[in-house]
Design a protein around this nucleic acid. Sequence first.
DNA 1: GTCTAAAACTTTAAGCTTGAAATGAATCGG
DNA 2: CCGATTCATTTCAAGCTTAAAGTTTTAGAC
Lengths: 145, 145
Amino acid sequence: MSELSKRRLKTWIRLLGVTRAAEAELREFLRLQHDTTLPRFDVMAALWRRREGLTMSELSRMLLVSNGNATAVVDRLEKDGLARRRPSETDRRTVFVDLTEEGLRAFEGMAEGHEMEVDRLLSDLDDADLEAMVTLLRKMKKDRK
Amino acid sequence: MSELSKRRLKTWIRLLGVTRAAEAELREFLRLQHDTTLPRFDVMAALWRRREGLTMSELSRMLLVSNGNATAVVDRLEKDGLARRRPSETDRRTVFVDLTEEGLRAFEGMAEGHEMEVDRLLSDLDDADLEAMVTLLRKMKKDRK
DNA sequence: GTCTAAAACTTTAAGCTTGAAATGAATCGG
DNA sequence: CCGATTCATTTCAAGCTTAAAGTTTTAGAC
């Protein structure tokens, strides 16, 4: 194993640690301030961004979760009256999901606090740092398959 | 909401996306090549690094998971004969966990492949990139509480 | 010494997550 | 049209994860 490879491994472990710690803080914020969870927030954020509705497949692809997982989270949001399923008129396989009025209001009530939390978590990164970070992430993302 | 705050949010979302995608590839590697999971690998790696054994509390702190979670994963590893619990002689509350012979061999059989996978995932980052990344992560990590 | 608080774990209930299998629907080649 | 394949989704079993509550043990205050 090369020296470089070992350095990549250490960097990866550190990256994972920092993101997990940050996620834990966000999760705690959502639980204490809004009595909800990160997966629910993520789904609601996706539905908020695409107000016209998303298919289940689009949703799971956007969030990088399995299709069965998306089904489960949407089930619970629907049970709580925050999301809604609507069958497609043209393709009877597909289902559109969107937020209900209540879901929209609930998300709007959380979004600003969430952004403030993230702002706090990254508060030591200035514009130049953010640009550097994005550049590095873009390099990592490049398709390798 | 300031412009900078919005940029931090976008950067965070991207960071999360990239690490989740990388984690998914590692998970797939572990499943296909070694019929195991990321949490199990993480626990085994921690036990490998600290060969003399770890308490359950140390383990959950190292991995940033709840204590109940550590209990569950160690239960399964123990059932499979890969890890072992040993009560402390001086403090009857604490339990030491370590890898069995079989666990050591199993981990050694996976470690190189895992490092190669990570090397591949970060293959577009050279030494300078890695240093830049670590610097940024250190900034993020700084205590904010 | 005794009482109280803290610590180390485990247990529990609920929710999250995955991969695989199942269902039902659309598409495509012939 | 028909049969095979692909596609969108759900269901399922197993494992992961958390927060909270519970158990047992240790340590500290007095």
